[in-house]
Each structure stands twice: as structure tokens, then as C-alpha cells.
Nucleic acid binder design. Structure first.
Lengths: 198, 198
DNA sequence: GGCTATTATTGACGATTCGTCAATAGCTAT
DNA sequence: ATAGCTATTGACGAATCGTCAATAATAGCC
């Protein structure tokens, strides 16, 4: 129902193919909307194969989510050879670009569709914590206060939710979004600066 | 295992009791960590009773989530007899207060723990959309642009994620949080104002 | 080009869980 | 007390999960 390739593949190729399928599938139907039998049929393989590669239903879902979040984390790495303001803009721009390109999947998988249990949420949360530490690093904040971390972490939630809403409503240009996200960071910067002094 | 009341209760009382239990249960274990048999046993009732009241497993979970989100929506209603700035601060303060009081449950249920499918997410999203429209109303914005809505909606994500992180790390006072959340709204206001003119 | 070893792949199976429903039992009112 | 109403139960069939021995497609060797 989707295969088209040879019946027997190398483990790596098959794994990649199944993950690519999982991305589409889970974006469309949620985790657990369809039983594993049906998922396997749609993927063009037997149920046993899915269990062989991913252990269980949650395993398949988690690895799919991990593939997406890893991608986001990799793409939004701020360039190290630029001053903060510039690197920061690059990061935001790349994030918005990713959402623009993979909108439906991003929205359904990372924020909208699901997040069925604690382990999955920790996976998704890794995007937020990684971004937070990257910003703290680039600003040379050694021992951030609780409020600082909350502020940055909250700002990441702002761009996540903003982008998620954007994928649904549309109607704003990427540059408008990017400019707003950057301006929304100013209050965060103020919190950070007010603490650098103390 | 939890009951203590009479064996037979009025439908309303039983319903309320089960929802109260569900809140604790789902906050601790996620949706679907335990089978319905075990959940019923912990609640001190039969499995059949849970199905009688809530239809199915998802039904029980959804109604529990709905109870929490309804509560949040009710509590954060901005007072109508005050100017915007004041009403806005009241709204934020009440939200932070709610999280401070029901931290674990809020975090686990609304953001952290789960959100297992599309319907549940729509339920949780209602908090964000309601807050967004309330703000637009209070600011007398009749036909908001896409960017305006995204900005406000994103800001709601900021306070949600900020509060969620706060429940985990602690370490900041409520007033610090509130002040930051309010200052973080300034860039949103700027977006709104720049469009009022056009 | 056939043959064999390797291993990717399958589908039937037992175990678990879901959701139903006729039967039960606790409360209220007369 | 007793009868009627209905909240509550637990055993049942259907569906789904996850396993595992059997299968078959490929690659390498002669």
C-alpha cells in the first residue's frame, strides 16, 4: 500500500522508510487512532515487522517523534561564528522556515496531535530545554536564576504556540512572524540584564 | 481504596467524586498507563461504573481534562468593571495563583503529562483561544489581523510554558512571574497598536 | 548458474484489555 | 415492612497487543 521497493531491504533502509511513513501517518491520524494491524497494512508491511523494529506501539511513535525533534534541534543550531543578535535571528528564522516547510507535520506531531505520555513529552521538551541552554550559553550567562530560565523557556513556548497557530490560520508573512518573535524576546533580555548586575 | 462514602450515591455526587479521583489519578499516572480495571479498583468502584458514567476510557480522561480547563477558564475571567491594564493584571495573577495552588495537576494534566489525541488537544486549546478572544474584546479590536491573533496566542503559550517550568524548578516568586508575564505582553501590544492605525 | 547460509519478514497464536449488558443490591417513599 | 426505582456490579464476547517459530528473499561462494 506504500512500499514499491524490494520486498526485503537492509535494516537501515527499512527503518528509515518506516520512520518516514510514521511521520506521515501519525501526523494524519494520532497515536493509537488505528490499531497496529491497520498501521502495518498501510505501511505495506506485516505487523510483526513493526514490532521487530520498534518493540511496541509506543516505541514506533516515540522514535518517529524523536526523528522530528532531532531534526528541529539540528536545524535551529545558532551559528557559532556570529554575534548574538545575528545568530539569534538566524535561529528564529530557521525555526520559522522549518515550520513553514513541514507545517502540518510539525503542528500535528510536536504540538497539536499528541504527546501521549510522559516519555514523549520529555522528548518534545528537549527542544525547549536545548534552545534555552543555547541562548544562555551564547549570552555567557553562567549561573542563570530560576526566573531567567523560566523567561527563556516561556519565550520558546511563545514561538512554538505562535507557529502552531500560524500553521492553522496562516495570513501572516514569515518575516512578520520573525520580527515579532525577536521583539518578544526583549522583555526576556531585560530580565537577564537586571540579574547580571546583582 | 478511596471511597469511604456510602455504597450508593446520587449520580451527581458520584460523578463529582469520580472526576475528583480522575484528576489525581491522571496527574500521577498518565492516560492509559493503567487499564480501566485497575483504575476502577483504585477509585473503589467497579469497572462497569466508570463505563456507565463516562462511556469509555477516553471519555473519562476527557471529562477530567474538561473539568480542569473549565476551572482555569472560569478563574481567569478578567473583571469587566475595570480598565484593561488592571483587568489584565488580575487575569494573569489569577492564572499564576491557580498554577501555584494546583501546580502538579495543572502541569501533568494540561501540559506535561499528556494530551493524547486531537479531541483532548482541542479541549486544552480552548483555554488559549478563550484568553485570546477575551483580550481582543477588552481592547476593542473588532477585526484582528492574523498576526495579532498569533501574537496573543503565542503570549498565552509563554505564560503556560513559563508556569509549567515554574512548577518544576520553582525558585521564583509569584510576583516576579506576574511582572515578567505582563512585561512580555508589551511587544504584543505594539503589534496590536501598529495595526489599529492602518 | 545453482547452492547454501544468513537474516529480513511473516502470520497465527496466547494473553491482555476494552466495552456491554443482564442481573444484583442499596436507597427512598409509602 | 415492603415495593419500586435505579445505582452498581462482574462475567462475558470482541478486539487488540506483543511474541515466536516458520518462511522466504537476498548475498556470497564454488
Amino acid at each position: 500500500m506504500m512500499d514499491l521497493g524490494p520486498r526485503r531491504m537492509t535494516t537501515e533502509a527499512r527503518r528509515a522508510q518506516l520512520l518516514a511513513f510514521g511521520r506521515q501517518h501519525f501526523a494524519e491520524h494520532g497515536y493509537e487512532a488505528l490499531p497496529m494491524d491497520a498501521i502495518a497494512e498501510r505501511a505495506g508491511v506485516s505487523k510483526g515487522l513493526l514490532y521487530h523494529y520498534f518493540g511496541n506501539q509506543r516505541g514506533f511513535y516515540m522514535e518517529t517523534v524523536r526523528a522530528v525533534t532531532d531534526e528541529v534541534i539540528a536545524i535551529t543550531e545558532p551559528p557559532a561564528d556570529q554575534p548574538f543578535e545575528q545568530a539569534f535571528r538566524v535561529m528564529v528564522t530557521r525555526f520559522v522556515g522549518y515550520v513553514q516547510e513541514h507545517g502540518a507535520i510539525y503542528n500535528a506531531l510536536v504540538r497539536g496531535g499528541l504527546g501521549s505520555d510522559i516519555e514523549v513529552n520529555e522528548l518534545i521538551d528537549r527542544v525547549r530545554t536545548t534552545t534555552t541552554s543555547r541562548i544562555l550559553e551564547r549570552l555567557r550567562v553562567r549561573q542563570p536564576s530560576a526566573l531567567s530560565e523560566i523567561a527563556i523557556y516561556g519565550w520558546v513556548g511563545l514561538i512554538e504556540n505562535g507557529c502552531a497557530e500560524w500553521t492553522v490560520t496562516g495570513g501572516a508573512s514569515p518575516s512578520q512572524l520573525i520580527d515579532f518573535f525577536i521583539s518578544a524576546f526583549e522583555p526576556v533580555l531585560e530580565v537577564l540584564q537586571s540579574e547580571q548586575c546583582s
